[in-house]
Simulated assay, not measured.
Amino acid sequence: MSPLCCCFIVSVCVTALASGLPPPRNVRLTSHNMDLYLRWRPPENLSNQIFYSTKLQASFDSVLSRPACVNTSALFCELSEPGLKLTLLEFGQYNASVRALSGNEMSDWVYSQPLTMDKDTVIGPPMVALVPQGACLEVSVKDPEFRVSSMTNVFGLPQYNINYWPRRRAHQASHMQVRQNRVVLSGLEPWTEYCVQVQIHVDPARNQNSAEASKPVCESTADMPSPPWITAVVTFVALALTVAVVVITVIYHKQIFHFLCPKHSLPQPLQNLPECPHAPLFVPEEQCHPLTMIPWQDEGEHLTANS
């Protein structure tokens, strides 16, 4: 048999083998926060177990298609999974394909639509934290984490659309646009709970998808802060009182000492007692006798009283 006939027979057999199984349906390539997923639906009217194999092709490598998930029963393949060791670039364009396998049968390859990472990815919601500062709220925004690169590397400095409103009064919502990831909301009602929602906005020429908004985060404000002049007056008065107390203490320290610690003199008879020699504080053999004090009278008064 000639080589040409052999090649023809092999080709017919492969075609027959491949065409014996319906292909997967609804094959699509998606990206969220710069990841890359290939998704599909199973073939119709098949009850036996089916496995799938996928491959990825990049626009900068139009010749070679790299295998990705092989013999998987899942209906998706995460092409950005590090374990697959596929090189993904934040500005690259990709398409992918999948085919079904069941026993000795396999379907044709079904290709997805092309996808450009930075233009077609969906930007997820940022993380939002609130810190009360008196009757104000400090809003802190953290960009979502990208699977490939980062927000600032891909889109530059984004714009944050901030909506805030009193809880249960959404019709009174206010709106502001900033480029800082930390901002203070002022002019709020004291002791009121406010809810804040943030959405990232990038240049439509770079990405036309609407970014996902964060879930509302709520926090209560506190009391109105005191005006600066009140704080200054209170500080000045406290300082003046402190200086006055120090000056009075220095000038009248003796009088104050005598007033707080007055001197008490002993009666005259006790002042004339001879001094006792120094003795230990505790002497077991020493006997103590009671001392009785009687009013003092001179000799003339004593004789008159006796007569």
Rank of each mutant, 00 (worst) to 15 (best):
C77H: 11
E78F: 05
L79V: 04
L79F: 09
E81H: 15
E81V: 00
P82V: 08
G83S: 14
L84Q: 01
L84W: 05
K85C: 00
K85S: 11
L86K: 11
T87F: 08
E90L: 09
G92R: 01
G92I: 03
Q93C: 06
N95S: 13
S97W: 06
S97E: 14
V98F: 09
V98K: 03
V98R: 05
V98P: 00
R99C: 04
A100M: 07
A100W: 06
A100Y: 07
L101Y: 04
S102R: 08
S102F: 02
S102H: 05
G103P: 11
G103Q: 09
G103L: 09
N104W: 02
N104G: 03
N104P: 00
M106S: 15
M106A: 15
D108P: 01
V110K: 12
V110C: 01
Y111P: 06
Y111Q: 13
Q113M: 04
P114I: 10
L115A: 03
L115I: 07
L115Q: 05
L115E: 00
L115W: 01
T116Q: 05
M117C: 06
D120S: 07
D120N: 15
T121F: 00
V122G: 08
V122S: 13
G124E: 00
P125L: 01
P125I: 01
P125H: 08
P126V: 02
M127I: 14
V128K: 00
A129W: 05
A129V: 14
A129M: 13
L130C: 07
L130E: 09
V131R: 07
V131G: 02
V131P: 00
P132F: 02
P132D: 05
G134F: 02
G134N: 05
A135R: 01
A135Y: 01
A135D: 12
A135W: 05
A135V: 00
C136F: 06
L137A: 04
L137T: 10
E138Q: 14
S140E: 12
S140A: 13
V141N: 05
V141K: 07
K142H: 11
D143H: 11
D143N: 15
P144I: 11
P144A: 07
F146C: 07
R147A: 13
R147D: 08
V148L: 10
S149H: 11
S149Y: 11
S150W: 04
S150Q: 08
S150A: 06
M151Q: 09
M151L: 13
M151N: 02
T152H: 13
T152G: 04
V154M: 09
V154H: 08
V154P: 03
F155Q: 08
F155T: 08
G156L: 10
G156T: 08
P158R: 04
Q159A: 12
Y160D: 03
N161A: 15
I162L: 10
I162V: 15
N163L: 15
Y164S: 07
Y164H: 04
W165T: 06
P166W: 03
R167A: 14
R168D: 14
R169D: 12
R169A: 13
Q172S: 03
S174E: 13
H175Y: 14
H175F: 14
M176R: 11
Q177E: 09
Q177C: 03
Q177R: 13
V178D: 08
V178N: 06
Q180W: 02
Q180Y: 03
Q180H: 01
N181F: 06
R182I: 07
R182A: 09
R182S: 10
